[in-house]
Design a protein around this nucleic acid. Structure first.
Lengths: 243, 243
DNA sequence: CGGATGGTTGAAACCGTTCAAAATCTGTGG
DNA sequence: CCACAGATTTTGAACGGTTTCAACCATCCG
């Protein structure tokens, strides 16, 4: 199989948790049978579905959501280039959340059977996937702090820092500029705010000269100030040591 | 090794995710080398520590916490009888959270090496542990909804339902009575409220006749009403089919 | 150019916080 | 069994961050 280059962020992600040999990468690449592009706003997985494959983000932003009866909606995770999601298929029953694309994205599937075979045969891959889930969990814990204990401005600052470091780890930051295709409603759903208040908080950081945004890009102008404001400490992302 | 009976909730928990054979249980029991009682309020793990073993709750309540510089504190998980935690030791670096006992508790350790050997040799156990982590993650997502989108009363009602079903699954409910040794500050830290408001919300449910509590026990008087109020749907707990 | 979507701003209402004091509970020792 | 001290719970009142509603503006795209 020709190396297309699409999988690069994924490989980089997994290798950072557990050293992978070239033949691990080959095996992984061979097992990824289907690829698919999705449009912003598209819903990939719905609550109540039965999962039968693992998903990988090759490129783009995806969100995980829970919805209440009356329509209130909360994002519980944000997935970026190289992230793995829905390992929860191990828990056999139905999905308790929905997955939506927040930007145009490129994703890949790994069928359940292939995953099981792969993780039996290649402990390094199993370990890496395992670690990736645990990092997701760690991020969710930090979101709980965002939503529960930080003020709107603080938690937005924190989210920007998180995005910066996560994207940097997969090589998706250039000169402090990150992809930011989110509407303010998207941000509000991640931080558990109203979209109006999300707007005010974002505006405040812009007026204070910490960030700038437009045309689906966000520029980080003063990272140290953002980190101070958001009380950000990158430890929870469990990134590899500085290169 | 004599069967002490202590491990029963743990076995029941793991077996519900992946059918375990008697020799799996023996192996597990043999690997659990140390046991320890802890007193309410004791801190087991601190932020910044390097984890070197997996922990199991044999009996009691433990909480996972994140603390901000200025002292604001948020509980990110609550562990009950049979729960496994700190699988995050797979991610090699330092702990980004603290673990505290919320009641007197009985815990067991599984050293890192033993765990690795065990999970290599016994795929059923590895699967069960894997599944247990994913359920923890699922619970955390629901907490995010609690904290982010539900009102104080709703989220307290939801928490009570969650406790009821989780404890019921390990046989720790009798006649609608569950252990409830939490102070209102404890509850407040789980739901991201002030302790004063936690008190008001709890009082409201008592006045409405949905619950009653005292002497470290809480009685569920009207489960259907609680579930309606909290918008509770047990699916996210991924409990085994009704027995 | 016009319609739709998303962003900004203002004012009022609300849920939850904070501060403070009183009431109650719990455990301990006498 | 009672008394007492400390911790926890309850209640009240004032304050504040966030939401809601509503209007207006900007931008994008056919």
């Amino acid at each position: 199989m020709a190396f297309t280059g699409d999988e690069e962020p994924l490989f980089r992600r997994l290798a950072q948790y557990s050293p992978l040999e070239p033949d691990d990468l080959d095996a992984l690449q061979a097992a990824v049978v289907r690829r698919r592009g999705v449009r912003a706003g598209e819903q990939l997985v719905s609550e109540g579905e039965r999962p039968d494959h693992l998903n990988l983000v090759l490129h783009g932003y995806l969100g995980r959501y829970k919805t209440l009866n009356d329509g209130r909606r909360q994002a519980t995770s944000l997935y970026v280039d190289g992230d793995v999601f829905d390992l929860r298929m191990y828990v056999l029953d139905t999905m308790d959340h929905a997955i939506c694309a927040l930007s145009d994205a490129e994703i890949a599937f790994l069928p359940r059977d292939a995953l099981l075979k792969l993780s039996d045969a290649r402990p390094r891959i199993a370990r890496a996937l395992w670690a990736a889930t645990l990092v997701n969990e760690s991020i969710m814990a930090e979101w709980l702090v965002n939503v529960g204990r930080r003020s709107a401005v603080e938690s937005f600052a924190h989210l920007v820092c998180e995005l910066y470091w996560r994207l940097r780890a997969v090589g998706a930051v250039q000169d402090g500029v990150i992809a930011f295709p989110f509407t303010q409603t998207d941000v509000a759903e991640m931080l558990a705010l109203s979209s109006v208040h999300a707007s005010r908080s974002m505006g405040r950081l812009r007026r204070d000269g910490l960030i700038r945004w437009g045309r689906r890009k966000l520029t980080i102008l003063d990272l140290p100030a953002l980190e101070r404001l958001g009380g950000f400490d990158a430890g929870y992302l469990h990134l590899p040591p500085r290169t």
